[in-house]
């Protein structure tokens, strides 16, 4: 019990960030028209690509002699970048189509 309480105490800032972010995520997209569901999903998909930062850190801290870590980290950086770049470009293409079809 004491361990849990002290954990909450030392990481209080993180708990605030997590809880407020949850509510923020719900509020931010609460009234979205159905046509935007797919682009919004795609946009959110690109945003969680921020995991790439974790991949960069893990890669940058790996020993230059540890080939397993280097190889796995290299793959992680590639797929993370795919997630980010592909995600944003696909979202843009969807929205582009959405705009032009609306003009007609």
């Amino acid at each position: 019990m004491e361990a849990i309480l002290s954990f909450i105490h030392t990481n209080l800032q993180m708990f605030y960030i997590v809880i407020l972010s949850i509510f923020l995520g719900i509020e931010v997209i609460s009234r979205v028209p159905a046509v935007l569901h797919t682009p919004l999903m795609s946009g959110a998909n690109a945003i969680h690509g921020v995991i790439i930062i974790g991949a960069i850190i893990v890669m940058g801290e790996a020993d230059s002699g540890n080939y397993t870590a280097l190889f796995l980290g290299f793959i992680a950086v590639i797929v993370g970048t795919l997630n980010v770049v592909g995600g944003f470009v696909v979202t843009d293409r969807m929205l582009e189509m959405f705009k032009s079809s609306k003009k007609k």
């Binding site: 995520g25 719900i26 931010v28 959110a44 998909n45």
Partner: peptide
């Protein structure tokens, strides 16, 4: 959480909660 990295934390949680609500709306 692993790297004590704020942008990963906020970005991840934001997508997690917004994504769940979006799933329900879809």
């Amino acid at each position: 959480f692993l790297y004590d990295n704020q942008v990963m934390l906020t970005g991840g949680i934001l997508v997690g909660s917004a994504g769940t609500i979006l799933t329900i709306m879809m």
